[in-house]
């Protein structure tokens, strides 16, 4: 197992060589991910692992992809999507344009799910979904809108549990074990690389989703990311986090009103 000291050396070298700063990541989770990669790729000494990462930028990309957790689903936590459908979209519907930011979108399942909700509410044509992630390979998958067909049964159940009434299979075409989602959905999406550690606000949004990303950060970095969202939210805009994440205990909290027990906060001023 990698020691804490080796982990610090690695974090330092990643910053020096590639400009990626992982010092604000949750140590417990980051260490576990690095250890997993180290073992997966059969390294037996830390020095050779470190040299490989520093000398081989392709391996560095693999590392970023592997240490970040990319697991996601469509309509993950159906209850959350039900609230979006019934409480949030009707409010956004009154606006001439709707701008949404998915921060840490991974392979895009969340973005396609929200696009489906927008379409069903007849709001998709006036909406733009900006979807960003630190890791280019996941964005590449997201852009294509092609997901494994074997997942569709569960996604369809999630969709129905979120209040969806259509036949879910209308949203994709099945081919060779893959489900390709319609271009009517993807044409309203913009994907780009954005690092919540170091990049700035790039637009103003009515709704920001950042779900199951902050859990990988320590409290200071969480605070930084939350301020970035604060700077990027329009007045009366909404911020949606994962089911176990919160803005409680941050300085922003007093300017936000939580939607009952949901992990959704509205910017009041």
């Amino acid at each position: 197992m990698i020691t804490d000291q080796e982990l610090d050396i690695l974090i330092n070298e990643l910053y020096e060589s590639y400009g990626y700063d992982f010092s604000g990541y949750s140590k417990a989770s980051f260490k576990r991910r690095v250890d997993r990669l180290y073992q997966l790729d059969g390294f037996t000494n830390f020095q050779s692992f470190l040299s490989k990462i520093i000398d081989d930028s392709d391996y560095f990309s693999r590392m970023v992809e592997e240490i970040t957790v990319n697991i996601t689903e469509m309509f993950r936590d159906p209850h959350f999507y039900r609230i979006l459908r019934t409480e949030i979209l009707p409010v956004l519907a009154t606006k001439p344009f709707i701008r949404i930011w998915h921060a840490g979108c991974s392979t895009g399942e969340e973005v396609y799910s929200v696009a489906i909700l927008l379409k069903e509410a007849n709001l998709l044509e006036k909406a733009l979904l900006y979807a960003t992630d630190i890791s280019p390979p996941v964005l590449e998958v997201a852009r294509k809108g092609v997901f494994p067909l074997r997942m569709m049964k569960q996604y369809s159940e999630n969709y129905m549990a979120s209040g969806g009434k259509k036949d879910f299979s209308h949203y994709y075409t099945a081919n060779y074990g893959l489900a390709k989602f319609g271009e009517d959905l993807s044409s309203r999406m913009v994907f780009s690389q954005h690092n919540l550690v170091s990049d700035r606000s790039f637009n103003e949004f009515d709704l920001i989703l950042c779900r199951n990303v902050l859990i990988y950060f320590d409290k200071e970095l969480q605070e930084r990311a939350l301020h970035l969202f604060d700077d990027s939210l329009a007045k009366l805009g909404y911020l949606a986090l994962g089911t176990k994440e919160t803005i409680k205990f941050t300085s922003m909290q007093k300017r936000y009103k939580q939607l009952e027990k949901e992990k959704i906060w509205r910017k009041t001023h």
């Binding site: 949750s26 140590k27 417990a28 989770s29 576990r32 957790v69 697991i71 409290k219």
Partner: peptide, 13 residues
């Protein structure tokens, strides 16, 4: 997961 500063972390890996 357990952090060394007495905080718990969660992980969806």
């Amino acid at each position: 997961l357990f952090e060394k500063n007495n905080l718990l972390s969660l992980d969806t890996s």
